Amino acid sequence: MNAEERWILEYACRHKMHQVLHVLCKKYPDGLDTFQVAPVYQGLAALLFVVTDWQLKDFQGAMEILDVLYIFAEEVIPYTLFSMLMTGLRTMHLFHLLKTKGEDILAKLNEYFPRNGRELKIQRVLHKREIEFRKLFISLVADEDRCADYLKHRYREDFGQDFKDSVRRLVNEFVSKIEEILPPTTIDMILAGERPSMRDLSTPTSENMEIVLDLILSKEQPTADDFVAVLEEMWQTEHRQKRKMKHTDISTDGLKLR
């Protein structure tokens, strides 16, 4: 990991460049946490990616991120927005468990929608529709035939594309409100003509830094494809340098002074 990759990761998270994030994840399969990029940037990118791509198996992790982000930005996020988004994610995750015959479905239902009201930062009484949802869901878990019939004939009408689009709109609104209070990324500052405090851009830099700066300073708005190409060029440069060092390394093993 180097400063240039951190700059790109930070910018890709802020500007929802999932193609760039995918390339970085392939390069670093153990995770991107070591990049020392502000967790809020990575959290926003992960939340948006999971919901936009409708990765139902990852919805539980997305809900954990959502909870943390809400605590971080509670002053600018209306509770109603947070609650509606969380309800949508929980509902979809429950149906995912139902369809895949996940374990402890009723326990998860009681965790998400407890019969005596649920707590998401503040205690409140269950809405009427949540009570009705509990009744529906319990009946589907209890009766396999009814469950199969519901999923085949009613599910799309109740929780189909319109519901999915609504959840996606909510997550975009949630992310946008947090982005309004975030500081600009290093690359955003350079594009705006500002000089990041941590570096004088006129001083000599590494080859990788020159590659990144050439891209940033030559385009008004670099694209995801631009950054993918830059990353590949950087990694090829690093590979050539390592090979060069390997071939020019002179071993003194076995040499003796007489």
Results as ranks from 00 to 15, higher is better:
148 A>T: 07
257 L>H: 02
249 D>M: 04
10 E>R: 09
128 K>F: 12
130 E>C: 04
226 D>Y: 07
167 V>Y: 06
120 L>N: 01
235 W>L: 03
237 T>W: 03
218 S>I: 10
137 F>P: 03
182 L>Q: 13
26 K>S: 10
122 I>T: 13
120 L>K: 00
233 E>G: 05
179 E>P: 01
71 I>L: 10
80 T>W: 12
193 G>N: 11
176 S>W: 14
196 P>E: 03
74 E>N: 11
194 E>N: 01
3 A>V: 13
37 V>N: 08
240 R>A: 07
107 A>M: 06
43 G>F: 02
194 E>F: 02
46 A>M: 12
122 I>A: 04
83 S>A: 02
4 E>N: 09
59 F>N: 09
90 R>W: 08
230 V>I: 14
12 A>Y: 01
219 K>W: 10
116 N>K: 14
194 E>T: 00
154 R>S: 02
73 A>F: 02
138 I>C: 06
147 C>H: 15
178 I>S: 05
93 H>T: 13
206 S>C: 13
220 E>V: 13
150 Y>T: 00
55 Q>R: 04
258 R>F: 12
148 A>Q: 09
43 G>C: 04
4 E>K: 06
176 S>L: 14
50 V>T: 15
166 S>W: 01
210 E>D: 10
172 N>D: 12
79 Y>T: 05
215 L>M: 12
6 R>Y: 06
145 D>P: 00
106 L>W: 02
76 V>R: 15
105 I>H: 06
136 L>G: 03
118 R>K: 11
207 E>M: 09
35 F>C: 11
62 A>R: 12
174 F>I: 06
70 Y>K: 08
54 W>R: 14
220 E>F: 08
68 V>N: 11
142 A>R: 15
81 L>W: 13
191 L>S: 03
